[in-house]
Amino acid sequence: MVFPERFSNLPAYAFPRLRSLLDAHAPGGSVVHMTIGEPRHAFPDWVGQVVADNAADFAKYPPNEGSDGLRAAMSGWVARRYGVTLDPDRQLVALNGTREGLFNACLALCPETVGGRKPVVLTPNPFYQVYAVAALASAAEPVFVPATAQTGFLPDYAALPAEVLDRTAVAYICSPSNPQGAVASPGYWADLIALAEKHDFRIFADECYSEVYRDTPPMGALQAAAQAGADPERVVIFHSLSKRSNLPGLRSGFAAGGPRSIERIKQLRAYSGAPLPLPLQAVAERAWQDEAHVEQSRARYRAKYRIADEVLGGVAGYSAPQAGFFLWLPVRDGEEAALRLWRQTGVRVLPGAYLSRDVDGENPGAGYIRVAMVAEEQEMQRGLIAIRDCLYD
């Protein structure tokens, strides 16, 4: 039997690799899980009641693009948050979590050729692994662009050769970035949008961490595009309730952009997507309308930033994240550090190389570990102290 070759060189997904690295060894203390970005703050207490009130709708097939009420709530949130007005019927589609959308949007919008040549999909390195798989599934060439301390932990796409940029169909960008917590400035957005206009590619903006920040709300890609007067088809944004509302199990998100882009995504999704059940759409609709629970959760993350700064502020190379809930900590070797930490302390972290790809013999994540600040504050502080004392003292 013949299998497709385009996926044959994919490395194992990060968390199976981590289990292979650590699970043969006993933990050196009480286990503290700091690997996966699964929010553990309480979700709104009204969630269960909304599900119960709408339970009869489990008997109905849900609309694939999202109910009218849900899309109106999503577009209303975009207007309040970014000052951008969207047509909820033509410029927005509900998703079953944003990973699905980040993948299917590439299938729907990446052309077969660019100027008669194989298209390029740009992705930061380190990156959310779905970006690369979406490129391969679209028969495009993924190009991994370092997002390092030297580039402000965001990719410098403008530094790429013109030959690559002229073949580019899609550029993924994550702001706030996973894993580094960097935020794209207004200037960064303006330059990227101008580059996309010059070389005629789309920007896929993964903004799932946009509501977890220290002080200033991060600028959004649609907001920047509107200010620049860019082609509305130039940008597609992706948002989720997983981090914003501590509802990763709800699997609710959306994509928004120009009407032709969203039409193509909807068309593909009609065949390949899994719509959210109507009772869960009712929960999502209310969640997008409510900011009180988001502000409460954000206050806790701000307290966690302070804890991290206090515990790790003296560590050489420590970069306090601007947003998101990950720490990107420099070490000599990420795998060695993760294994030593597990065997000596019981703290479980992710080697940075598992989120990155080797390019020209270099892996920009190899000298880092990613630490998720999702545990209760006291447990998180204990884990960070163990990291500091084990790896840096």
Rank of each mutant, 00 (worst) to 15 (best):
S297V: 11
V371D: 04
Q180D: 09
F127C: 12
I193M: 07
C106R: 04
F201G: 05
A137Q: 07
P364N: 06
Y305R: 06
T168E: 01
A182D: 00
P277F: 08
G69I: 01
Y13M: 12
P277M: 08
W189T: 03
Y392C: 03
Q49G: 13
Y271P: 00
P63Y: 05
C208Y: 09
L355E: 13
A73F: 03
E197F: 00
W288A: 09
T123F: 01
C110S: 12
G253I: 11
V183M: 10
L192F: 03
C208T: 14
A224E: 12
F58D: 13
R80T: 09
G187D: 14
A230N: 04
V212E: 09
A320F: 01
S138L: 01
L22H: 07
A59P: 08
L329A: 04
Q289T: 02
V371W: 10
F3Q: 14
E163R: 00
A292L: 11
R370P: 06
V2I: 09
E163I: 00
L247M: 15
L122N: 03
P39L: 04
V236C: 13
I237D: 06
F201L: 05
E100P: 04
F326P: 03
S297D: 10
N64R: 11
N363F: 12
P11M: 08
V32R: 11
A55H: 13
V164T: 15
L327F: 05
